[in-house]
Simulated assay, not measured.
Amino acid sequence: MPTGLAIRDVRDQLFDAAERVLLRDGPSALTSRAVTTEAGCAKGVLHRHFTDFDAFLAELVLDRITRIDDQAAALRACAGTGTVADNLTQVLMDLFESVAVAIVSLVTSRDGLRARLREVRPTGVPILTDAATAIASYLTAEREIGRINADADTDTLAPTLIGAAHMLFADRQGIPPQAGDVRKIVTAVIAGAEQEPLR
């Protein structure tokens, strides 16, 4: 059996188990034993593939960032289709209905994990910063084709959208926001950017 394939399969199994524990029980319950128990494997399996638990968690976060990078290309490709508000609403729903909010909580709660991530990503909050970059790129594409004002500050609009949506989704115990709730934020944030400047 090719070694790379086996390692990838184990990593995916452990990452998926970590996400389930994180979503169900929160960051404080995420331990190597909880992950391996959830994955149905011996505790030693995790430590054979990762130097320590923070290294495992850092790889989990970086793997999830790669997924956002893939979504960013798809989002940018939809510039000029549908409406800007609908496209942004959908990407924010997809982002925050995933494990993203829980991962942000995990990163902020573990000093060792933050230190590991700073070695490879010195600025910003992982996941949120990457999502803001993806949205800024999309808004720039929309600006280039004239659906967003030429003077719109996409680098400010994007993190504003991320921050506002994050606030909606941050309460893991409450009722999750609906698309209409997210769209209301989106339309408020981009309202001025979509209008033609008065000259």
Rank of each mutant, 00 (worst) to 15 (best):
residue 46 L to P: 02
residue 95 L to Q: 09
residue 153 D to M: 05
residue 154 T to F: 07
residue 67 R to M: 12
residue 48 R to I: 07
residue 47 H to C: 04
residue 163 G to R: 04
residue 100 A to T: 12
residue 19 E to Y: 01
residue 117 L to G: 07
residue 81 T to K: 12
residue 88 L to F: 13
residue 112 G to W: 07
residue 56 F to W: 11
residue 107 V to M: 11
residue 130 D to L: 00
residue 100 A to C: 04
residue 30 L to S: 08
residue 167 M to A: 15
residue 150 A to G: 00
residue 11 R to S: 12
residue 92 L to D: 11
residue 17 A to R: 13
residue 184 K to I: 00
residue 132 A to P: 01
residue 171 D to S: 08
residue 114 R to Q: 14
residue 1 M to D: 12
residue 98 S to D: 14
residue 107 V to A: 12
residue 150 A to N: 07
residue 70 D to F: 01
residue 179 A to G: 07
residue 46 L to S: 06
residue 91 V to Y: 02
residue 125 V to I: 15
residue 164 A to K: 09
residue 109 S to A: 15
residue 180 G to D: 14
residue 41 C to F: 10
residue 90 Q to I: 12
residue 114 R to K: 11
residue 139 L to C: 07
residue 79 A to D: 02
residue 165 A to S: 13
residue 193 A to K: 05
residue 139 L to Y: 01
residue 171 D to M: 10
residue 163 G to D: 14
residue 21 V to G: 03
residue 55 A to I: 02
residue 28 S to C: 00
residue 51 T to C: 00
residue 48 R to M: 12
residue 49 H to V: 09
residue 160 T to D: 13
residue 175 I to K: 10
residue 128 L to P: 01
residue 75 L to Y: 01
residue 140 T to H: 08
residue 128 L to T: 10
residue 20 R to F: 04
residue 40 G to W: 08
residue 65 I to N: 13
residue 77 A to S: 15
residue 183 R to Y: 04
residue 140 T to M: 02
residue 120 V to M: 01
residue 60 L to K: 09
residue 146 G to D: 04
residue 73 A to Q: 12
residue 63 D to P: 02
residue 41 C to T: 15
residue 93 M to Y: 06
residue 25 D to W: 02
residue 85 A to Q: 13
residue 11 R to F: 10
residue 124 G to C: 03
residue 160 T to H: 04
residue 154 T to S: 04
residue 51 T to L: 10
residue 92 L to T: 08
residue 34 A to W: 09
residue 42 A to R: 14
residue 58 A to K: 01
residue 124 G to Y: 04
residue 132 A to E: 10
residue 157 L to I: 08
residue 56 F to D: 05
residue 150 A to H: 03
residue 47 H to V: 08
residue 176 P to T: 11
residue 84 V to F: 06
residue 53 F to I: 01
residue 110 R to L: 05
residue 111 D to K: 15
residue 100 A to P: 00
residue 141 A to M: 08
residue 22 L to D: 11
residue 108 T to H: 15
residue 138 Y to W: 10
residue 68 I to T: 14
residue 45 V to S: 15
residue 137 S to F: 02
residue 79 A to K: 02
residue 162 I to Y: 02
residue 164 A to L: 14
residue 75 L to W: 02
residue 90 Q to P: 00
residue 28 S to N: 13
residue 136 A to P: 05
residue 67 R to D: 12
residue 165 A to Q: 03
residue 132 A to S: 15
residue 13 Q to R: 15
residue 153 D to L: 07
residue 92 L to H: 08
